[in-house]
Structure formats: C-alpha cells, structure tokens
C-alpha cells in the first residue's frame, strides 16, 4: 500500500467531485447564500445591548423579515434597524427578553402575523423556535462562534452548502436528499414540499427569490403550506397575549422606550382566511386598545395596501422596498421614530 499515492488520488478526485457537484447544483439554479440560523441571529441580538434611544429593533415573523428592507429604512432615517424577526415565530418571547434583560430604550417594531402572534404564550413551535435562538444567544460557546464566522465565507462561495436550519424541502445536503426519497404509501400523504423562497445577507435582510414571483407553480406550492398551516391553527388567543404584553410595554415605556405594532400585507385566499379566523375587531383593534400602543395596519393606508404578495404572505423585494419607504414616511410623520438625517 502506497499511502502517498492514495492521498494524491483522494485529493484530486475529492476536489473533482466537489467541483462537479457545485457546477451541477448551480445548473439547477442554486446560488450561494447564508443560512439564516441561530448563530446569524445571535450576532444581531448582541447588537441590541449597544443601541441608543434613536435605534430600532424589528421583531416579528417572516412578514417583517421579508417586508421591511433595512437599506431603505436606513436611507430614509439614517438608522439601520436590527433585524430580529424570525420565520414562523411569535415575537413575544424576544420582546420579553429585550424588555427584561436589556436596557434598550429605543423603538421596538413588532410585526403582527395573526396566526403566529395570537397564539398561547409559552406553547407551540412558534414560541419554541425563538426561545431556542435566545438560548443559543446566551449559551453559545466560543467554538460555536468561531465555527459560524469560519462558515460565512464558505457559504458565500459555494452553492452546494445549502443545508439550512429551517430544513427546507429543497435543501441539498445529504440528509435532506435521502429523506426526500419517497416509496410506497405506508404513511398518509404528508405536508407538501416547503421550499426556500428567499435569502438573507449578513445582517439578515431578506431578498425574495425572483422565481417566487415568476414561477406560479413554485409560489402555489408555498401558498399550500400557508393555507394548510392556518387551517390547523387553534382558535386565536387574544386576551392572554395582550395581558402578557401589558407589563412589558409599561416597563419599556418607563425607561423611555417605545413599541409599535405593524400588520404587514397578505393577499388572496390567505388574507381571506386570516380575516375570517383572526377578525380585525377581535384581534388587532383589541390589541391596540388594550396595549395603548400605536399600530399600523396595511389596510388603513392606501400606500401600504397596493401590493400583491406572490405567495400570498410576503412582499416581493421590489415591493418590500416601496412598502418600507412608505411605512417609514408614516412613522416619521407620526413622530414614532427619529430621523437622524434631519436632526
């Protein structure tokens, strides 16, 4: 056995295999992108501890994540918000943590995606996911931090590095590829494939994939997930959620901070379902009334209500930019946020 010869063959072939695989996945339309994982989130969370009263923290689910564009916000106000919205989550545990564990006295913008927001505090995946991120923020080891920083340049370079914490159906890591194989019908039909439809940059600003707008079949696949999800949700929990927020809002205001609720657009059948299950008077209006906070519902402003979401739940990036600019204008007019550019 000549190990020098073996290692030589292994290096050459190993690089060749990777190169062929990389070219193949690129030919399928995959691009190099960052994983919007707990480590990326934790970096943004760490920034909250150093913010001033002029700063903005964005909380919520994927709607805030997709619909609010950080560049446009910064361009209009001179302040780059911290994006802490996480897909498929309620903002409540993060808001609680920011109020109770930090001295932040700026403005917290809280996105209200009804099906996720009006859910029982402390229960369900919408609560567990942000809690896991918080736990990671507090418990991450130096090794985990180092691994994350080392992985960033690789993720930015190679399209085949596509495994995500979200576990999208179209991830191309070995586990997903194997788990996607379906044979026979031993199990009833499960959830339809849930494919990734956007990518994040280092500060978690999201850009929706072009194909979400151009490929109707792709978009309809995602719509199926939203509609299936909303059908399975339990009855809205309004009073408990509001009660949960009240002392937190009071505490934040006492130290000079502010919070604003926003309701980002939805379209089509999903919007119909949302309005039917989470009626505005019972949920949104009651939230504003009892919390005493200002809220901005897209339906109340023509400039915010001019968009159609390609997959019924999130704005396409060009629309998201316009939406952000218009929302910021409204918030500035109402003196809810500061404009450092004109100060």
């Amino acid at each position: 056995m000549n190990l020098k010869k073996s290692v030589g063959i292994a290096v050459v072939l190993g690089i060749a295999f990777i190169a062929i695989w990389e070219l193949y996945v690129r030919s399928l339309g995959y691009v190099s992108e960052l994983d919007d994982n707990k480590a990326l989130w934790a970096i943004q969370r760490a920034k909250v501890d150093k913010l001033s009263s002029d700063d903005i923290v964005l909380l919520g689910s994927s709607r805030v994540h997709f619909d609010i564009q950080l560049n446009e916000w910064e361009e209009a106000t001179g302040v780059r918000p911290i994006m802490l919205a996480s897909d498929g989550t309620t903002p409540t545990p993060i808001f609680k943590e920011i109020v109770e564990e930090t001295d932040f006295n700026g403005t917290v913008v809280i996105g209200v995606a009804p099906a996720l927001f009006f859910s029982q505090p402390g229960k369900g995946f919408m609560w567990d996911r942000p809690t896991k991120r918080l736990r990671h923020y507090y418990e991450q080891t130096y090794a985990q931090r180092a691994n994350h920083y080392l992985s960033l340049p690789l993720e930015r370079t190679f399209s085949f590095l596509n495994a995500s914490e979200e576990e999208w159906s179209d991830d191309i890591d070995l586990k997903t590829l194997v788990n996607n194989i379906k044979i026979g019908n031993r199990l009833p039909e499960g959830r339809p494939p849930f494919n990734n439809f956007g990518f994040v940059d280092a500060d978690r600003n999201v850009t929706m994939f072009e194909k979400t707008k151009t490929d109707t079949a792709f978009a309809n696949g995602i719509v199926k997930i939203w509609l299936g999800g909303i059908e399975r949700r339990p009855t809205p929990v309004v009073d408990s959620v509001i009660l949960y927020y009240q002392p937190l809002i009071e505490k934040l205001k006492k130290r000079g901070g502010n919070a604003i609720f926003i309701r980002c657009p939805s379209s089509g059948k999903l919007r119909e379902k949302e309005n039917e299950i989470y009626s505005r008077t019972v949920c949104w209006d009651e939230l504003l009334l009892q919390s005493g906070l200002n809220g901005y519902h897209f339906e109340d402003y023509t400039q915010l209500n001019q968009f159609t979401c390609p997959e019924e739940s999130h704005l396409f990036s060009t629309d998201a930019r316009i939406f952000t600019k218009e929302l910021v204008k409204i918030l500035l007019e109402d003196q809810q946020i500061s404009n450092l550019k004109t100060r």
């Binding site: 010869k5 073996s6 292994a10 190993g14 070995l174």
Partner: peptide, 24 residues
C-alpha cells in the same frame, strides 16, 4: 488493498462528508 482503490474510497468519503454538511 490497491493504493488507487484506497484513494478513490478516500475521495468518496471526503465528498460525502462535504455533501452531508454537518452542522457540528
């Protein structure tokens, strides 16, 4: 085992490790 067989096997292992993208 012939050296070339070991080399090919080694490359396959390396490729599968990369494909698995273990998240640590």
């Amino acid at each position: 085992t012939p050296s070339w067989v070991l080399g090919v096997g080694w490359a396959v292992l390396f490729f599968l490790i990369c494909l698995a993208q273990g998240s640590g």
